[in-house]
C-alpha cells in the first residue's frame, strides 16, 4: 500500500517533469538494458507465481518469457515486477514495466482511458464464486445477504455489484488490497464468499489451508478475457508483444512444439517455414530477428504446451481447455496468419 503510493507519486512525477517529446522506444530500451521488465501478479498459481527460489512460472510469465526470447533471444532475460491489482496500471503508465502480463481483463474503459493497449487474449475467463461447503449453498442465486471478499481495483469489484443488482439481492463487499489478504479474510470467516475470475478461484483454492472444504459455484457471471498490455504510442513494441502470443497459437495450430521445432525447421509446409523464419524474412519488419518465433517455441513452447504445463492437465489446477482450445477444436484461440 505504501508501495502503491510511491508508484502513484512516481507516475505523477514522471508525467509532470518527463519530456513531452516523442515516446521512448521500448524495443530500443529493452535491447539496451538486456532484459524485459514484466509486470506480473504477487503470486497466483498457474498464472504468475514465484517458487521458494524466486523462479517465476505461469501462463502470464510465459508470455513475458516469449517476448524476451523474441527480442533478446533468451527467454530467461526477464525481470519480474510483482504488482497487486491497484498498482498495475500505474506501473505501466509510469514506465516501470515494459509490459503488463498479469491476469488483466481487457475492457473498453481500460483501453480508452488508461493509456494502454491490450495486445491479445492469453486466457478466456469469467468471474465465479468460491464458497465454504459448510454453507450448503448450491447456486449463486442463493447468496442474498452474503459477505463477499473481493480484491480492490478489479473488474471483479464491478461485476459482483452488477450481478447482485440484476438479481435484486444484497451483499456486503469486503475489499482487500492483495490476494493474500483476500484469502485470509475468507479463511478467517470474515466473508461467506470469495469472488474472482474462475481460473483464479481454482488457483487460490489450492492456496487454502483446507482446499477440500471450499468449492466453486457453477455460475459464471462475466466475460474476462485476460491478456498482456503495453503503453499506448509505441506501435512497434505493441506489435512485437501481440505477435509473440500469435506465434505461440499459430505454432500449436501448425503442430510445432518445443520438442519438434528443430525438425520442423526443415518442413515443406510454407506456413511453418514462414513462421520459423526459414523463408520469408518476416521478423526483420517486426524489428526482431527472422527466427524470432523459432526461439519462442524452442524456449517457451507453443500455446498448448504453455497451457497444459501451467493450468492444464500437467498442472495441479487441471483446468480443461474449454474456451481456450484452438478455434479448430471448437475453442476461441485464433491467431491471424504469419505471412
Amino acid at each position: 500500500m505504501t508501495r502503491n503510493k510511491s508508484l502513484v507519486s512516481a507516475a505523477i512525477v514522471s508525467l509532470a517533469i518527463g519530456s513531452t517529446a516523442a515516446q521512448a522506444d521500448t524495443l530500443e530500451n529493452v535491447t539496451k538494458k538486456g532484459y524485459v521488465q514484466c509486470g506480473v501478479s504477487t503470486g497466483l498459481p498457474g498464472f504468475s507465481n514465484p517458487d521458494e527460489k524466486g523462479n517465476w512460472t505461469g501462463i502470464d510469465v510465459d508470455v513475458c518469457r516469449g517476448v524476451a526470447a523474441a527480442v533478446l533471444g533468451d527467454a530467461s532475460k526477464v525481470k519480474y515486477i510483482p504488482l497487486n491489482a491497484k498498482e498495475r496500471f500505474t506501473a505501466l503508465q509510469s514506465g516501470e514495466i515494459d509490459l503488463l502480463s498479469r491476469n488483466t481483463t481487457w475492457t473498453l474503459s481500460r483501453d480508452a482511458s488508461l493509456g494502454m493497449n491490450f495486445s491479445g487474449v492469453t486466457y478466456y475467463d469469467g468471474q465465479g464464486f468460491l464458497i465454504n461447503k459448510g454453507l450448503g449453498v448450491k447456486s449463486a442465486t442463493e447468496l442474498d445477504g452474503a459477505s463477499i471478499c473481493i480484491q480492490a481495483g478489479t473488474t471483479t469489484e464491478l461485476n459482483v455489484s452488477d450481478y447482485f443488482r440484476l438479481k435484486g439481492m444484497k451483499f456486503e463487499p469486503i475489499v482487500f488490497d492483495t490476494s493474500d489478504q483476500t484469502v485470509k479474510g475468507f479463511e478467517a470467516g470474515r466473508c461467506d464468499v470469495l469472488t474472482s475470475d474462475q481460473s483464479q478461484l481454482y488457483a487460490l483454492r489450492i492456496k487454502l489451508a483446507e482446499p477440500e472444504k471450499a468449492m466453486v459455484l457453477p455460475e459464471v457471471i462475466s466475460k474476462e478475457p485476460l491478456g498482456p498490455s503495453v503503453r499506448q504510442g509505441d506501435d512497434k513494441w505493441f506489435s512485437i508483444v501481440k505477435w509473440t502470443l500469435f506465434a505461440m497459437i499459430n505454432a500449436e495450430e501448425l503442430g510445432v512444439s518445443s520438442a519438434n521445432v528443430d525438425k520442423m525447421k526443415t518442413s515443406d509446409n510454407p506456413s511453418i517455414k514462414r513462421l520459423l523464419g526459414t523463408e520469408g524474412g518476416l521478423g526483420a519488419n517486426l524489428g526482431v530477428s527472422d527466427d524470432w518465433a523459432y526461439k519462442i517455441v524452442k524456449q517457451v513452447g507453443n500455446y498448448g504446451e504453455v497451457f497444459d504445463r501451467n493450468v492444464g492437465e500437467n498442472s495441479p489446477l487441471k483446468i480443461s481447455r474449454g474456451l481456450n482450445a484452438l478455434w479448430s477444436d471448437g475453442g476461441l484461440m485464433y491467431a491471424p496468419p504469419a505471412r
Partner: peptide, 28 residues
C-alpha cells in the same frame, strides 16, 4: 485502514475509484 479493508477515503477513493477511473493525479 486500507490494509484491512476498512472503507476510508484512501481505500475507497484513492483506491478503488482511482483504479477504476485511472485518474491518479486528480484523485491524489
Amino acid at each position: 485502514a486500507t490494509a484491512i479493508g476498512y472503507p476510508d477515503l484512501v481505500s475507497v477513493f484513492s483506491g478503488t475509484t482511482l483504479n477504476q477511473t485511472g485518474q491518479a493525479i486528480e484523485i491524489i
